[in-house]
Amino acid sequence: MSQAHTEPLGKASEHVHPEEQTNTGIPNKKVAMWAFLASDCMFFGTLISTHLIYRKTTGYPDVTHIFDIELTTGSTFILLMSSLFMALAVSAMHKGNLNNARWSLGAVILFGSLFLGAQVYEFHHFVHDLGLTINGSIFGTTFYTLTGTHGIHVLFGIIWLSSWLIYSFFGTMKREHALDIEVAGLYWHFVDIVWIIIFPFVYLIEYV
């Protein structure tokens, strides 16, 4: 990622519209994203509560025989690393270094995909090798719903960031788009944090 490949971002537009000067100084998009994340907290809160409430009820298998904790720990690490690259991408955007931002975004997408691939493998393994299905036991029901919902969040983040990456080649990236990347970054970090909560409450707790 040498300086030579850097493309300049487009110029900021000449005049600022009143609706872009906000009372708080925080852009509207960011406020709305924070509100969405507050709401999403409640979504995951509900799912995680459901899973915990149904732990150890009838039909709850010995889950430690099912989990592949090494794999999941590894994929957790990968997801955390993706957050680092997300932060780098946002920082590069703010500095106007489009090329750096592209590389970082690419890394986020790659790591996110690796995480997702691990989850797909995990699900496949559970279903086909261990016979753990969503409608086979209450554990399967809550486990697949919770981690699946998280997986869909990751997938959505990957699609979102990929769209920006592709757009950066075909559209006109401007300095203002740093905000859009930052908002996507908020989402991405949030999805990571949720996994940091799911990992102990769904996986590690079974080994206690």
């Binding site: 149904y54 409608n135 209450i138």
Partner: peptide, 20 residues
């Protein structure tokens, strides 16, 4: 959860299968 129970046979609210 209700939709999953109805369409995919999950057990969120099925008393007989550990749901409540």
């Amino acid at each position: 959860q209700l939709m999953f129970d109805r369409n995919f046979g999950t057990f969120f609210f099925e008393a007989g299968e550990g749901g409540r």
